[in-house]
Write a protein that binds this DNA or RNA. Structure first.
Length: 110
DNA sequence: ACCATGACGTTTC
DNA sequence: CGAAACGCCATGG
């Protein structure tokens, strides 16, 4: 573990490429990395992203429906939503609005 | 090795 | 896309 696991490192690398004001899903990242059945591991990687030197925009990663399932892992009770709204993303009841339009698929852009 | 947990996703009702 | 059952797979006890 001293060295970053290759899989985790790839996840962080892709996450950092998500454009400002756009979002993607755990499954999309997993699929892009050739581990389509390991979407949960992407979430696990995000859980460890807080201790990294390089910051990871984990708030831009949501589930396939555009729901902020990981908001409770951020500090406070509403930080994830606030970060998204600060980028012009509209969130109502933990659900990203216009999700289809701001969704960024690494498989189609990398 | 077994069981529980989880920032997911698909299928089914 | 409500709710629940599975499937999936790394981690931890």
């Amino acid at each position: 573990m001293g060295n970053s696991d290759n899989f985790f490192e790839k996840v962080y690398k892709v996450a950092r490429l998500i454009p400002y004001g756009r979002v993607t899903s755990y499954g999309a990242i997993a699929k892009y990395l050739g581990a389509a059945r390991s979407a949960r591991m992407v979430g696990w990687a995000m859980n460890s992203s807080g201790s990294l030197e390089e910051e990871v925009p984990a708030h831009r990663v949501v589930n396939r429906l555009g729901i902020l399932t990981g908001k409770h892992h951020f500090q406070g009770t509403n930080l994830m939503q606030q970060l998204l709204e600060s980028e012009g993303i509209e969130v109502v009841d933990n659900q990203i609005q216009n999700f289809k339009e701001i969704f960024w698929d690494p498989s189609e852009n990398l």
